[in-house]
Design a protein around this nucleic acid. Structure first.
Lengths: 138, 138
DNA sequence: AAGGTATATGCAAATGCTTCTCAATCTTGA
DNA sequence: TCAAGATTGAGAAGCATTTGCATATACCTT
């Protein structure tokens, strides 16, 4: 796989996938998003650039991009997936229980411990999910 | 809250909730389960003890027990929640990607790190979710 | 032990999110 | 420019879960 997302359009082509107006609109939305939008949000935003985008295409494209490693799917609260581009460094999430805000963080030490624990249990980690749910310290 | 699950029936009463045949059947299933059954599995098993249990009651009871802290809800793969009694020590999960088996583990060091990270970000952790997905080391 | 009342249940319909079906429309390599 | 095949929009279909409502039941009070 190429460097995920340096040039999504180019990557698409490289994977033998067609570059369509809708896909470009969706990729654009993801690039602009600083939050972790839901499929519905992505649909709304993509339609600002291209009103023809349909719900089905958003889901199909997100699934495609996820499989390609370009997009990450998060299931924070169990009521709808939230997406983000996989172009930055790997990170985990801290969800603010009061505001719903999502803070990203990265801890090599935790990653290290995870690997050790898995090894002790006889496993190799393929991926992991770490989510902290909390409230701002008073 | 009383010691969750030492005596679920007693706890139910204490919370002003009625002790019904169905609820006892569902609690029994959860106590016997060594896996992390889905709602559907719980329904099937509960019906062995009480054929009258309905799907709706399983969901309603699980929601109630979760709110009471008696039951933990897990969303490992995004296709259906899996439940377990909250009577044992807190633990996280390692999911075997090949077999779907769920291994439980507990690491005070990771918990410690999580708290530290949250503190650095200005948060107090209310709860967290850590799931490792991997395969057996050859 | 019996009764009354609010809670709990079963059934089926309704949700919410996501995926699929299919004819019509594009993208792309030649 | 064209043909072949991928992609799309619209709506139907799927799944897990929730809800509405009439009936049944637990349990507090006689």
């Amino acid at each position: 796989m190429t460097d995920a997302n340096a040039h999504p359009e180019t990557d698409l082509r490289a994977d033998g996938v067609r570059v369509t107006r809708q896909r470009l609109a969706i990729l654009h939305v993801l690039r602009e998003a600083s939050d972790h939008p839901r499929a519905e949000d992505i649909l709304t935003r993509a339609r600002q650039q291209d009103p023809s985008v349909s719900q089905a295409t958003v889901y199909r494209t997100l699934a495609m991009l996820e499989k390609a490693g370009t997009v990450l799917r998060n299931e924070f609260d169990g009521s709808g997936a939230r997406f983000e581009l996989a172009d930055r460094q790997h990170h985990d999430h801290l969800i603010d229980l009061d505001t719903g805000a999502v803070v990203e963080f990265h801890s090599p030490r935790i990653e290290q411990l995870q690997a050790e624990i898995a090894a002790e249990l006889g496993y190799d980690i393929a991926w992991h999910r770490l989510e902290l749910y909390g409230r701002k310290t008073p």
